[in-house]
Each structure stands twice: as structure tokens, then as C-alpha cells.
Design a protein around this nucleic acid. Structure first.
Lengths: 345, 345
DNA sequence: CTGTTAGCGCGTTCAT
DNA sequence: ATGAACGCGCTAACAG
């Protein structure tokens, strides 16, 4: 019934078997209502008997499209990626599109290579997770771009569709939670230098604080750890840490613990993302959940709408992030403000 | 220079501009040596001026191929997936192939849908991460399959290319490590029922033990936790746990800790996979590293070899997994063999 | 309602 | 060494 390399029946085979022309076969497939009931049945039967499946290459060549979208990501290993990909894939396959993965590793060479791929027509559109236009300085009119939507990381200076979490609002909420617990000295451990996302989170944090206390970071566990070490060289310490992301928070907690402090008893720390393992660490991490699946789905939805023509002006879609309260934050217990370095190790 | 929707030059444009026939243009691209030096230069120049890039659909239609491979996975969220995907993608793009993601969620419907996709010719081959042939009972002769290679999870009853870690050897090694530490009572917390991978790991474990002590599990954190709870109903307990995977180990450790025990002081636990967060939990997890990237690369390599014709009989490629010693295992301290339930909570 | 025809853009004989 | 012509498999006019 469904052997595989079964000579792959073509539309001609079906037409011949059904005793009609190929045009009729084509119609029965795409516009069934425009073909007589009787012949439709014959054709349908013939299709079933031959196991016919339209050749995508031929059809796409004719239709000048590919029914695929290319997803450009700087890192498949990013803990947020799988969730987003699931959403992307789900929305795409639901509408008959395939999703191609393009891992750039931040490299310009790879970006160019994928772009060349795009220009061969193997993909109709682009989902960009990198936070910048592939190959900086691409034309200057937005019309010069291929259909594209950015997700997770906004792209500056261009009026491009974007969907991601509302970082500022979420960060403000997280910070306010810390404040409501009684914290007055909260440090923000930033993400990679120049990260627009980190800047937005910082802005949200700033809105909830009268004075900012900024610490550099890079979004990695090691970066979080290093930030804490640097902080301990100073004379004063915050009572709570609002971290750019969960990885940073994990690093912060690790460093704190290895210095002999307890979390949340001695210091509260809150992360951002709610990565899959956020609730498996000790203490389980209070954080802001990023609606990954939804981000993926709506980003793909917007792109496909553009591809199929039902879409007007670019829009920024900011989704809500939920605060997930777990164990890593509590009321400040003592005034550790004057804690000196070298508590213990 | 590289505007985007730049009318997309066709081979005719290039031919016209270079003053040659399209056949010559085609040759200059695929068999440069068969064209005169002088004309080659003209054509090359014309290509550069027009920014010509061959249309993939047309070319693939003509060549009856797609230059894409479909990766069927039961779960993008599996912690092992990203690493494998990176390897897959790397090897594919290096050889000019694109990789398409097919998330089945274990559903037959999705599998069928992706298979139909395959049969449209949008993909030339398949990488199967599900551990079974898509749509069980597919023909009976291996020749009826499309080019395919299984990775991570072997497919029984068929002579299919497979690449994964050598579970038995690795499990034996892990168990022997526990034994070398002095443990005599080691329980194996199994994976999902019927998992061939879990059976192999169990077999390796058995080889290092005189008597098996089996506990059901399902490969999830919750499953690991539950396994421990069930164990505490009994009168005797092991001094160490060899877990099917890291998630299970995380659950085991969590349950042990919440019962007031310490790991590794009271119980040693060892996992399998070395997922990204294995070293961030407390205690950091001793485990067997699965060579994900390498698995992905060699699986894709084999598939592409088959697609390009340089390949003979199917082969099983078993890669070595390294034991990664961290903090979750130590020598058994006391004889907890008669520990009763309800230690504390 | 149905069949005929003309390409979509390219690779490839087959002549020259 | 190069060009003319055919066809991969399909959809979209255009007739009838």
C-alpha cells in the first residue's frame, strides 16, 4: 500500500488512471469545488490507488515559494531556544510550513551562508533570534528585506516585526516583588554588554528603585559567579540580587553558597526566564517566566501572515511574563550592608 | 550590491549579459574545467554583476532531490536534543544540506504528517531520534525505507544504521565506579518501560553486580522522586543509586534531601547523560557524558554518505561515553541497609 | 466542467 | 568548447 520508493507516482499517472487530464487532477486537489462530483470521485480514487503525493519541488517552482521558513539562532544551546522552537514548529507545521534551523554561533560567515541559502529560494521567510539583522548594514529601506520577524531579541534602528516578553514591565514586577519583601538594597546583575534585552530589564528595575546598583555580567553562570566575587571586594553589599537571567542567578547562588552564605536566608536572588531546571536547583529559583512557546507561535504566526499577504504594518508584540515565586527570595533578615569580604569559605 | 528582492536574476539574465548560452553558464558553475578560460571569466563576471544565485527549486526539481534532511524527534525539549541538533546541523550545513525539524511529541499523527512531507520530496533523508520506525510496520524489507539513520535510540528488528553511545559499556563503567567506592548495594532506577536504552544500561549495570536491584522509573525528575518514595516503604535500602538518566538522578537527590538525608554522605547517586545543568545542582552530579555533538555529526555524516552514494551496508556506531566525576558519589559511610522509613522530613 | 498549452528555472544530452 | 532543445512535475490561464 505504501511502499516507499514506489516509483513515486506523478500527476500524469493519476490522470491516466482516472481517465482525465492532469489539469483536472490538479483542480481536484486545490479547488475541489470546481470539479464535478463524479469525476472528483474517480480522481480521488486514482490518487488513493497510486499513493500519489504532489512533488513539492515542482509545485514550489511553479508557485515561486518553498513553504519553509529559516530560523536564525545564535545558539541552539540557549536554554530558551527549545521552548521557542517548539512554538515555532507547531505554528508552522499547522499551516503546512517546514522550519529550517540555522545556527550562527554569532558568526558572520554562518549568517552569510544562511542568507545565501535564503536567496536560493529554499526558504520564504526568516525568524531572527539573534537580535540583529543578518549581515549588518543590509540595505536601508525596510522593503529591501525578505519577509522577516524578530523574536526574543529586538532589532534596533529598524521598523521590524518583533515579538518577545515585555522585559521592562516584567523586570519592574520582579524588582517590586523584592521591594515588597522589604529589600532596599537590590543589585541588578546585567547581561552581556550592549544587550538591548538587558537594558530593558535594567530600565524596569530602575523604575522600581530610587537608586540603581549595577553590576556587570554576561548572562552565563560563570558571569554570575564572577559578579558576586567582584562585589565582595567592596565594603557594602545588597540584600538581594535581580539577575539578568536564570543562568546568572544560578552562578550568583553558587558563589554565595560557596562563600558560606545561605540563600534566601542571607541573600535573596531572583532570575529571569524560568529555564527548565530553575526549580531543580537548591533553593528552587524565583524567577520570571518567559512565555517561550507563545513567543514562538505568535512570531511564526506573524511571519506566515506576511507570507500569505494578510498583514499590514510591522508591529511589536510584547507578551506578559509571569512571576514564578519559589524559594530563592525572602525578607531580608539582617543588615548585611556592612558585611566584609571573607565571611567564610 | 545585495538588495534583496532584486528581481532575482535567473540564469538567462547571466547568459544574456555574458553573451553566451545558459548551458555555458550552467557549466561554468558545475564543471568549470569544461569551459574556456576566457568565457569562464566573462560568465563569472556576469554572475557577480547580477548577483545571480541558482534557484534551488528549479535545480532540485531537475536533479530530483532537495538537499534537506528531516530530523524526527519525539521531544525538542529533551535535554539531549540541543547538543545532538548542533552536531546534526553542523555536519549538514558543511555539506550544503539543510536540516528540518520534525517534532512528533510521540504522536502517530505527527509522524504520518512528516512522512507525507518526506514523500513530497522536500527532504532526501531522515534522521530518527524516536527509537522506532515512523508509522510502525512500515514495509518489511529494509529497501523499502527512505534513506534513514537512527541516532540516540536504536530501532529494533531492523538492520538500520545507528549511532549512539555504548550504553552497556558506559553503564558498566559507572556501576564499577560505585563498586570501587565500596558500594555493595546499588539500585538501578530504570527508564520508561520498554526503553531499549534503559535495558542496555541495565545490562551494563548487571555485568558489574552479582545481584540486581531494580526499581521502576520513567526518566523524569518526578519519576526519580517517586522511585525513592517507593523504596522507603521497604525495610532495606541501597547505599547508592545508578539512575537511567540525569533527570531521574535529580529527582532521586531531591527526594533524598527532602527526607533529611545528605548526598553523597548518606547515599551516592550517579546519573547518565551529563545534561547542561548536571553541574549546577547541589551536589553537582557525577554522571556519564553522552557525546551528543559527536553523535549528531556522525549520524548526519552517515546519512549524507548514503545520499551521495558512498556507502555500503548499514552499521551500528557505538560511541564512548565518559564518566564525569563530580560530587554526588562517595564511599558508603554507614550501613544504612536497615534504615526504616520516616527518617525525617 | 474539463482539456490544452505554456511556462516556472535549471541541467543535460546531442549536435556542431 | 559551445548552443539548441527537451523535460523534471506542476499550476494557471484560456478555450471549449
Amino acid at each position: 500500500m505504501d511502499d516507499f520508493p514506489a516509483k513515486t507516482a506523478t500527476i500524469d499517472d493519476v490522470a491516466k488512471l482516472a481517465g482525465v487530464s492532469i489539469a483536472t487532477v490538479s483542480r481536484t486537489i486545490s479547488k475541489p469545488e470546481k470539479v464535478a462530483e463524479s469525476t472528483r470521485k474517480k480522481v480521488t480514487a486514482a490518487i488513493a490507488r497510486t499513493g500519489y503525493v504532489a512533488n513539492a519541488m515542482a509545485r514550489n517552482l511553479r508557485l515561486k515559494r518553498s513553504q519553509m521558513v529559516l530560523v536564525l539562532t545564535p545558539s541552539i544551546a540557549d536554554p530558551n531556544f527549545p521552548g521557542i522552537l517548539i512554538g515555532l514548529e507547531k505554528a508552522a507545521s499547522k499551516r503546512g510550513y517546514g522550519v529550517l534551523i540555522g545556527n550562527t554561533d554569532g558568526g558572520v560567515t554562518q549568517e552569510e551562508s544562511y542568507l545565501r541559502f535564503l536567496s536560493t529560494g529554499m526558504a520564504d521567510g526568516l525568524i531572527v533570534l539573534t537580535g540583529h539583522l543578518p549581515v549588518a548594514g543590509w540595505g536601508n529601506s525596510a522593503a529591501a528585506f525578505p519577509p522577516l520577524v524578530a523574536a526574543t531579541r529586538p532589532i534596533d534602528h529598524f521598523d521590524i516585526d518583533y515579538v518577545g516578553v515585555n522585559d521592562m514591565v516584567a523586570a519592574k514586577m520582579a524588582t517590586e516583588y523584592l521591594v515588597s519583601l522589604g529589600h532596599m538594597h537590590i543589585a541588578y546583575i546585567a547581561g552581556p554588554a550592549g544587550s538591548a534585552v538587558s537594558e530593558n530589564r535594567q530600565a524596569g528595575y530602575a523604575k522600581a528603585m530610587s537608586a540603581e546598583w549595577l553590576v556587570d555580567g554576561d548572562g552565563t553562570i560563570e558571569g554570575g559567579r564572577a559578579a558576586v566575587e567582584r562585589l565582595f571586594i567592596r565594603d557594602t553589599l545588597p540584600t538581594a540580587f535581580f539577575c539578568f537571567n536564570d543562568d546568572t542567578a544560578i552562578g550568583v547562588i553558587g558563589a554565595l553558597k560557596s562563600r558560606g552564605y545561605r540563600v534566601p536566608e542571607d541573600f535573596s536572588v531572583i532570575g529571569f526566564d524560568d529555564i527548565p531546571y530553575a526549580n531543580t536547583i537548591t533553593p528552587s529559583l524565583t524567577t520570571v517566566r518567559q512565555p517561550r512557546l507563545q513567543i514562538g507561535e505568535t512570531a511564526m504566526g506573524i511571519l506566515l501572515d506576511k507570507l500569505t499577504g494578510n498583514r499590514d504594518a510591522p508591529s511589536k508584540r510584547l507578551l506578559h511574563g509571569d512571576l514564578v515565586v519559589r524559594e530563592s527570595c525572602t525578607r531580608p533578615r539582617r543588615h548585611l550592608l556592612s558585611a566584609k569580604r571573607g565571611a567564610r569559605s
